[in-house]
Design a protein around this nucleic acid. Structure first.
Length: 176
DNA sequence: GTTAAGATTCCG
DNA sequence: GGAATCTTAACG
């Protein structure tokens, strides 16, 4: 059966471990419904995993704080934070409740860079904790098309130890 | 209360 | 290479 409407991804997609969710997110569609009614849909092109209190690159390595609290919730919520006083970073919480993990959205079609895409999508602190599976202003849609996906090390985390710096926890769309 | 540093981007 | 710009976390 052909259907023109893409299916919104639900809780079952996000409550899996970040190592499963991250590669699965690449090639999916990020939908944003602006306050004026415009809706834009863009392919997710690049993501990174931040997983557990052991991960020295993950904000949760400092334990549960006001900022990291949402990462401890059940997968499907949004974790956003401000970096360098000017860029909002968009993350999707994954995994079961009680285990802090999230996937950083580093790029979408047309906007390469985590700070650039949030500016384009008008994502800010008000999205902290938003439920991706229920929100009316942001959600993820299934994509029947399949893609070649590459992987590599995470960007901008030189402060973390070798074990964590070298994890192949960045995934991206390969040019076809 | 003070301070150093940051999952970035842009400019010179 | 360095600034912009401000929140967070660490220390006191």
């Amino acid at each position: 059966m052909n259907q023109n409407v893409n299916q919104r991804l639900g809780k079952n997609f996000f409550i899996r471990d970040a190592t499963e969710v991250a590669p699965a997110l690449v090639g999916k569609i990020l939908a944003r419904n602006f306050s004026d009614g415009r809706i834009i849909r863009r392919l997710i092109t690049e993501v990174e995993i931040y997983r557990g209190e052991e991960d020295e690159a993950c904000h949760a390595s400092k334990g549960m704080t006001r900022r990291t609290r949402v990462m401890y919730s059940e997968g499907g919520r949004i974790y956003v934070y401000l970096i360098y006083g000017m860029y909002w970073m968009l993350n999707f919480v994954t995994g079961p409740e009680g285990h802090p993990q999230a996937v950083l959205i580093r790029g979408i079609e047309g906007f390469d860079g985590p700070g650039k895409l949030t500016r384009a999508l008008e994502i800010d602190g008000t999205f902290y904790g938003e439920d991706l599976t229920r929100s009316e202003r942001i959600w993820i849609e299934e994509n029947r098309r399949k893609f070649r996906i590459g992987k590599g090390t995470r960007i901008g985390i030189d402060y973390a130890g070798e074990e964590w710096r070298s994890k192949p926890w960045r995934y991206f769309l390969k040019n076809t």
